[in-house]
Amino acid sequence: MSDRPLLEVRDLTVQFQLGGGLFAPKRTLTAVNGVSFEVMRGETLAIVGESGSGKSTIARAVMRLLEPAAGTVHLDGDNLTALSGAALRAVRPKLQMVFQDPYSSLDPSKLIADIVAEPLVVHGRARGGDAAALDRTVQTLLEQVGLGAVHMNRYPYEFSGGQRQRIAIARAIALEPKLMVLDEAVSALDVSTQNQILNLLEDLRTRTGMAYLFISHDLGVVQHVADRVAITYLGRIVETGPAARIFGSCAHPYTQALLSAVPEPNPRRQRARRHQPLAGEIPSPLAPPSGCPFHARCPHAMDVCRREMPAHTAVDGGGSVACHLQTEGPRLAGKPLAADTPTPP
């Protein structure tokens, strides 16, 4: 049982219908395209990508806040994609989510105590309506995230961004989930607050053994928190692998470009490693390019890249990569010839 993944996502595809007005024809936007991955118990999988990569859509589809067009999501043996209504609500305690914007994720008209207690109340875990016991539980939850009883009878507007994110985390751990989806949970925060929240999350993970699906665009943060990393581009996963391998010797040209685009926090070294940045931007998912989605920006693009979508192949050091350079291109000592691995930041 325990060697089976906690979360198993297979061929997940999410589409949005756009337009469909009187004069605009309906168009289909494929935001997530045949994505597969798994999260083991107690593990942190980071899904990394730029805007338009589909990473937040993956999070919402896993949470069943969106209906996937195809694919399955299994959590702890339950096929989430086959559940709905009461059956779906019954498994919700196993997976919880923390959202990016701590300003809009808390209902401004509710007291903190009620916000944190809500999951317990809706799942009938408020211990037979004993208000004092519920209060104690809420207080314990707030203490676990570094807040306390003094904060219970206050409103969200009285808290800073970091504190609000603590409240959102208290709400998410109230039901003792096995998987927590963190959708850019620290990217709206200032540097100093961001680290407080990251440490809190790491602390909670070691204490409770929950797993994290960590959605982020910030490679610096991911490098510190992730066990495994999946890099997304235009709705597909282009590379996965253990964090050490991704940050040590990544295999996909896009991963390389991402890593070298993050400025190093040292002026001498940053100025020494500067080179021509990757040209262009993510193409529109409404008009995805043929073949490999990255070929238009790829410095190593070959003919085959324009024609065929590369399949995932295994990489030394763990994980896989979807790139023709692995199978078709010139290779030297087991590595694609043209790929100069950047120094890890």
């Binding site: 730029e50 805007s51 665009h217 490679l219 470009a257 991402l258 070298s260 685009a261 993050v262 400025p263 940045p277 990757l278 040209a279 931007e281 993510i282």
Partner: peptide, 9 residues
Amino acid sequence: DVTVQAQVL
């Protein structure tokens, strides 16, 4: 995005 940030910088 980081890759575009690098371009603008």
